[in-house]
Structures are given as C-alpha cells and as structure tokens.
C-alpha cells in the first residue's frame, strides 16, 4: 500500500505521469471494483436479505463479491440493519479494522436514516452516516437482494473515479439518477410540479 501511495504521489507531482497514472488507475480501479469482498454487518431484518443475496438464487459470487466475516480481508462494509447506541462502537471498530481502501454500503432504511425507528426510539442511531462515511445508500425495508446487487454496481462506478494519487478524481460518467431523469420518476415536463410538491 505504501508503495502504491508513493507511486501515486510521484506520478501526480511530476505532472508528466498523466498517461501512466490513468493506466495504473484504470487497472487498480478495475481490480478493486471487480473484487468487492463484503463485510456483512448484518444486525437485523436486512441481514436475511444480505444472506439471500449471496446464496443460490441471487449469487453475489457472480460479481466477484462474497462475504468474509473477518474485517481485515474485506473491502466494503454492508451495514444491513438497525444500529443501536450499544452496537455503534462495535460497528465503528470493525470499520476501523478494515484495510484501506474501504467503502460502506448502508442497506435498508434503518441504516440510511433510522427508518421505521426514527421516531420514539431512544436507542436507535438515525443512519450509520452519523459515524461512518457511507458511499452507497439503498432504500427499502428491507431492500430486495437485487437492490444490493445494484448497489454493488453503483459502487463500482464510484470506484472507477478514484485514483491512487492523492486529490485526483477521474471524470467518468456515473449512471446515478439525477433529477430530470426519466428513471428518477419525474417526467421531464413535470419537473416543476414535482418540485412544488
């Protein structure tokens, strides 16, 4: 890791290494994106869908992503389920144990915002982004395994913009939905009505 970081620094400082840097980045991002091993941080209901995602019917292994229980061997933490105040230190510690580069997927409404437990609950943390840097959010209570697959593909796109050089971001087109997108649920003509609501 240290070597790679230094290489990135040298290439970006010299200003000469544009082509070399982009090629190395393309290779690095390809390998990182295609081999996203998951740390299944399944606490509640979503854990069932997380299990289902890696089993026979949905088979995450197809995307080169399979769950490892040991944080040291993983790249992406899938926080699936409600995180309570008692659990949060443990989740944070597991996240810290993962080696860089690492990503977080917040799976399910509880991990996104507290979901159904937003109101009246004295112990639920409203979203894991209170203490973890979340890269991809998946809505749903619980989301279907296909949503998780979609999240992995989205995360792959996000990784493809990253560089081994510090502070460099590649411009790649993300297929993330934007407002005005048909797939976003708002028809182009009716954007204002949507906003007014």
């Amino acid at each position: 890791m240290a070597f790679v970081d230094r290489l990135g620094e040298i290439l970006s400082e010299g200003g000469q290494g544009g082509i070399i840097l982009t090629s190395i980045d393309a290779l690095a991002d390809w390998s990182r994106g295609k081999s996203l091993w998951a740390m299944p941080m399944g606490t509640a209901c979503c854990a069932m869908e997380l299990i289902a995602a890696s089993f026979a019917k949905f088979d995450f292994d197809r995307h080169g992503s399979f769950p490892r229980p040991d944080p040291r061997h993983t790249d992406v933490m899938v926080v699936a389920g409600t995180i309570t105040r008692k659990m949060a230190p443990a989740v944070k510690r597991l996240y810290e144990q993962m080696p860089e580069p690492k990503w977080v997927i917040a799976m399910g409404n509880c991990a996104v915002s507290g979901g159904i437990f937003f109101y009246d609950s004295y112990s639920v943390i409203r979203g894991v982004d209170e203490f973890l840097p979340v890269d991809v959010y998946i809505a749903g209570c619980p989301p279907r395994p296909e949503s998780l697959q979609d999240a992995v593909l989205r995360l792959r796109e996000l990784i493809s913009t990253e560089s081994i050089a510090p502070g460099v971001k590649h411009e790649r087109t993300l297929s993330l939905p934007r407002s005005g997108d048909v797939s976003f649920g708002v028809r182009p003509g009716s954007a204002e009505e949507g906003d007014a609501e």
């Binding site: 105040r85 937003f118 109101y119 009246d120 609950s121 004295y122 112990s123």
Partner: peptide, 15 residues
Amino acid sequence: HPLRRDYTDDRMIRR
C-alpha cells in the same frame, strides 16, 4: 428507565 411514562431523552424524537 425508558419504559416509565415520564422518561425523557434528548435523543428521542417524538412522533
């Protein structure tokens, strides 16, 4: 003790 009716908590948002 949370299940007492008069329990208050700053972190709790009332519906």
